[in-house]
Computed example of a mutant assay.
Amino acid sequence: MKLFVILLVCAFAISSSFASDPSPLQDICVAIKEPKDAVFVNGKFCKNPNLTVADDFFFQGLNIPQSTDNKVRSLITGVDVNKMPGLNTLGVSVARIDFAPNGVNPPHFHPRSSEILMCMEGELYVGFVLSNAFENRFITKVLKPGDLFAFPLGMIHFQLNIGKTPAVAFASFGSQNPGLITVGNAVFGANPPIGPEVLIKAFQLDKKTIDYLQSQLWFNNRI
């Protein structure tokens, strides 16, 4: 029995270690594109640590409002390992989200990270949906400046500006590259398209409606 408990604890420890980015094996691993004389760690090649500079760990501009003149009236400015090479192996990233009045960050999920969102300006209606095992229970809240809300890893979630003025939020992630899958874009904007016969049965819609949805230009509100 004791051996079983030990094995069970070890199994949970091992599984939890893969629930987010792996721990770094060295102090820094600044990502570079050229593999010459480099080491491949966490999906990126590492610059020689002796050649790193402050700018590898620096990003400027998250204080600048971005244009929300688009279909969904919101825009995400993400800062992950692709924009700040020094984040490689550090297991963190951030994003700024600008919302016009009635702007929405459409239902989406992050395959590699949970998220903590802080409302900085405006009033946001936010929420996420639990998995089928919990009967897709909907968890929701209205956020005002200074409020925080957490979105669990892999759960579909959204944010909507319900105020009369622009809104701003900052998100923190437990991954250098949390990923972003917007549900509508992925289902109806897949390339090549998902067979309409699948979507007709899955969503219980007629072919005309599915054809209309697949013909739309699904907007990616991330820069």
Rank of each mutant, 00 (worst) to 15 (best):
K2H: 12
V5A: 13
L8H: 05
L8E: 10
V9E: 05
C10S: 14
A13R: 11
I14C: 10
S17A: 15
F18V: 15
A19R: 10
A19Y: 11
S20Y: 11
S20E: 05
D21A: 14
D21S: 11
P24E: 04
Q26T: 10
C29M: 01
A31T: 13
I32M: 03
K33C: 06
E34M: 09
D37T: 04
A38S: 03
K44P: 00
C46R: 01
K47V: 03
P49F: 04
N50Y: 09
L51W: 10
V53W: 04
V53S: 06
D56S: 13
D56R: 07
F57D: 09
F59I: 14
I64Q: 05
I64Y: 02
Q66M: 14
S67E: 01
T68N: 06
D69F: 14
D69I: 14
K71N: 11
R73W: 08
S74V: 11
S74G: 02
T77W: 03
G78M: 15
G78Q: 13
V79D: 00
V81T: 07
N82Y: 10
M84F: 02
P85G: 09
P85Q: 12
G86T: 11
G86S: 11
L87A: 00
V92I: 15
V92R: 05
V92T: 04
A95S: 15
R96T: 07
I97N: 02
I97L: 14
D98S: 07
P106N: 00
H108S: 02
H108W: 04
H110I: 04
S113K: 06
S114F: 13
S114Q: 07
M118P: 01
C119E: 10
E123V: 15
L124H: 02
Y125D: 03
Y125R: 03
G127D: 03
N132V: 10
E135C: 04
N136H: 15
F138E: 05
T140Q: 12
V142N: 11
L143V: 09
D147L: 10
F149P: 05
F149D: 02
F151E: 00
L153D: 01
M155A: 06
I156M: 10
H157T: 03
F158V: 08
F158S: 06
F158N: 01
N161M: 09
I162H: 02
I162K: 04
T165P: 01
P166D: 06
A167K: 08
V168E: 03
V168T: 15
F170S: 02
S172F: 13
G174Q: 06
N177I: 08
G179H: 00
G179V: 12
A186R: 00
A190K: 06
P193Y: 07
I194L: 08
I194H: 02
G195M: 09
P196A: 09
P196R: 10
K208M: 11
K208I: 12
I210Y: 00
Q214K: 12
Q214S: 06
S215M: 14
Q216W: 05
Q216S: 11
Q216D: 09
N220H: 15
R222V: 13
